[in-house]
Amino acid sequence: AKRKAVTPGAGEHPLQYNYTFWYSRRTPSRPANTQSYEQNIKQIGTVASVEQFWRFYSHLVRPGDLTGHSDFHLFKEGIKPMWEDEANKNGGKWIIRLRKGLASRFWENIILAMLGEQFMVGEEICGVVVSIRFQEDIISVWNKTASDQATTARIRDTLRRVLNLPPSTIMEYKTHTDSIKDNSSFRNTKIAV
């Protein structure tokens, strides 16, 4: 179905891009093939201004209060949070693993950095994801071109700054091609020191 275009309201502060929130939840026993992933991922809203963002965000459950195997995704409008999307297929993501209890704060800070255009990498950012898992939570930042090392380095450094990460924090990068190959988001990553 065609959706009505989302635009900033009168007197609101426009964002550089419109962003769409998505939510997904998986029963761990079911196979995570592309079809079931696409069926499980639900578009929940699009925002075009700072004020629209806050109105929407304030009604969302905080990721730290979610249970089970679930994800919030915030992507530029028009980009599906899937490896196979045209905007993602040559891309990859930075991964930060968090101990339980930190996800809500990190999620908010990373969203604000993306909405405020703090990464300074042109059109490269596709979106951000918070993944709630049983033992740990994971924040990821997706960009368009996995092979562009200047861009990925700049994203990594911005993440360290906006999330105030200690220098010892392990950061991992994984290309979506590798994720498709081993059908896993967070296994077999490359560790950057």
Binding site: E51, S58, L115, E117
Partner: peptide, 21 residues
């Protein structure tokens, strides 16, 4: 074109504006 950049402090201030609530 010009890029619309907001720092965290500004975005947090907008959170409390009447339009955002």
């Amino acid at each position: 074109g010009t890029r619309i950049i907001y720092d965290r402090k500004f975005l947090m201030e907008c959170r409390n504006s009447p339009v955002a609530r």
